[in-house]
Design a protein around this nucleic acid. Sequence first.
DNA 1: AAAATAATATGAGATATCTCATATTTTGAG
DNA 2: CTCAAAATATGAGATATCTCATATTATTTT
Lengths: 223, 223
Amino acid sequence: MEIYKGEKKRICLEKYSIAHLFSFPVEEFIEVHEYRRDEWIIQEGMRPDFLFYVIEGKAKIYVTHQNGKVSLINFINANEYIGEMELLNDVYYTKGIQASTKTVCFALPFHCYRTQLLEDAKFLRELTRFLSGKATFMAAKYSQSLAFPLENRLADFILQTADEGVYKEKHVTVCDYLGVSYRHLLHVLTQFCEKGYLQKEGRNYQIKQYGSLKELAGVLKNK
Amino acid sequence: MEIYKGEKKRICLEKYSIAHLFSFPVEEFIEVHEYRRDEWIIQEGMRPDFLFYVIEGKAKIYVTHQNGKVSLINFINANEYIGEMELLNDVYYTKGIQASTKTVCFALPFHCYRTQLLEDAKFLRELTRFLSGKATFMAAKYSQSLAFPLENRLADFILQTADEGVYKEKHVTVCDYLGVSYRHLLHVLTQFCEKGYLQKEGRNYQIKQYGSLKELAGVLKNK
DNA sequence: AAAATAATATGAGATATCTCATATTTTGAG
DNA sequence: CTCAAAATATGAGATATCTCATATTATTTT
């Protein structure tokens, strides 16, 4: 982890101004942190000291269960918060947050800003929207995971993550995210290839039948 | 649905004052609604006109999937909000909310209060806490549902809902809540009886071995 | 470059969970 | 009180998904 100082920090604060998110100045004690790919921004079970706001990059929220299974609960993208749960709740089991690409965040020390943040309607309004989205998203994922087999959820995931018609996510990550075993994921991917929806190219998969995948993914959505 | 008027309304407003939740007076346009058991407070897919605050009773959040499966996403208890998603988000698929007992709510018309509410730090702070809890809870349920078989989740549910050592939830409701088929739920309940954890009494189940159930439920929690 | 580690790959048997069919009992509406 | 609907109950076969074992191929570290 690198903490930006001097010129580098100044430029960053200027480029990604977040003044509009608060009704008071937060510049004074803000820090700018850069995390390398795979670095842990927050260790599971350890309370952070900062409220983070992601300005560049992408991270993953992980939780480890007692039976050793790991769940990738969700991704965090630019313009989203990290550590807001700990800001709001004194009792909270902290999830692990891992950078999945180089990730740059603003870090607001709790001890400087906690009180002010919790009284700032502008900040709270945005946070409320963010959290309502998070709650809604998790509720959707939850109910979908119970109502539909992997086939449907995977089709949806492929369509969402494919880049120019090519799906190239790491199997291991996807297993944690969709909550299925490695073996089963590979099995369903193979089926997709046999049915002609995908075509394997080295370790990537080329989408061949958008229509079929869209149909599978479509049943997840409530119109 | 009954709307309280006159004396009945006044008494209710007095008994369950919610003035402390807002920094401005909300009494003027507030309504008090009472819903009978099984009545729909909000119809799935229909935007409500009110922000509700439950003061008595218990309700259920349902969503219907395209394949006909129904998920009971969560329960709502006294001192919780309903309709907050619609208050915050212009685009939102409204879930169905059904009273599971007689339920009394305060109903704040969006058109009167929306603007004020979204600028009220006191209200927003509490709502933020509520939503963070909701998001956390859904994330936990989600990851647990993928990481553990019904056996564990059911043990947890039984311990949470048992009343004086007796479990007596409706199977149908539990299926929707835990996201499993009726057949399978009955199967696991039978196993619990065979193992001596529970003992069937008519249509209820008496808990016989707390320890065993606690052990099964315990692995869900991250310490 | 060698060694260690992570990711991919595949087979085979086990288990959790689902679907469908059908019967009985309980509950709510008229 | 009666009938229809809802809830409970159970069997049997199908399928989704898991576990474990083992190989091969990349990637990272030394």
